[in-house]
Simulated assay, not measured.
Amino acid sequence: MIFYTKIPTTLSPYFQRELQMYREEYQSGRLQIAWSHLERAHIIGQRYLFSHSFVHWEMLLFGFRIKNPKEIIGQIPRLLVGGVKSFVGKVPVGNPGGANFPPLKSFEIAQDIQEIFSKAGVR
């Protein structure tokens, strides 16, 4: 069995870029755009324990910052269980990670993110 802990170095810059764009958009008050970058970071990093857990932590903090009880409550189990599922390679691929989506449902991955995976040589 393969355990997935750390995001590959070829994929990490794309993941970090989404997190940076999240921070910039959040600082500028463009919360919806900021959130979309967290979702993209989630999709990129969801197969890896540390990056997956980190994005759910950021989503939880975002929920607190915007005072959204649904997001706060929805992120707690995702934070506790999501990383474990990554660790053993059992994630709902393409799931954006927010509380507004079923936690175990897979989604089609956007073409540009598929291209990121291809460039990074993963999947």
Rank of each mutant, 00 (worst) to 15 (best):
M1S: 13
T5Q: 02
P13Y: 04
Y14S: 10
Y14A: 09
Y14P: 05
R17P: 00
M21S: 08
R23L: 02
E24F: 02
E25C: 08
Q27S: 08
Q27H: 03
G29K: 03
G29Y: 01
R30V: 00
L31Q: 09
Q32H: 08
Q32M: 05
A34T: 06
A34F: 04
S36H: 02
L38K: 01
R40E: 02
R40G: 00
A41M: 04
H42F: 10
I43D: 03
I44K: 07
Q46T: 07
R47N: 14
Y48F: 11
S51W: 03
H52N: 05
H52C: 00
F54G: 02
W57G: 15
L61Y: 05
F62D: 13
G63S: 14
G63C: 12
R65K: 15
K67F: 12
E71Q: 14
G74S: 11
G74N: 10
Q75C: 07
L79C: 08
L80G: 07
L80N: 02
G82V: 01
V84H: 01
V88H: 03
G89W: 02
K90A: 03
V91M: 11
G94Q: 07
N95H: 04
N95M: 04
P96W: 02
P96M: 06
G97M: 04
G98I: 05
A99V: 06
P102A: 12
P103L: 08
S106N: 08
E108Q: 14
E108I: 10
A110D: 15
Q111E: 15
D112S: 13
E115Y: 10
S118N: 15
G121D: 11
G121A: 10
V122C: 10
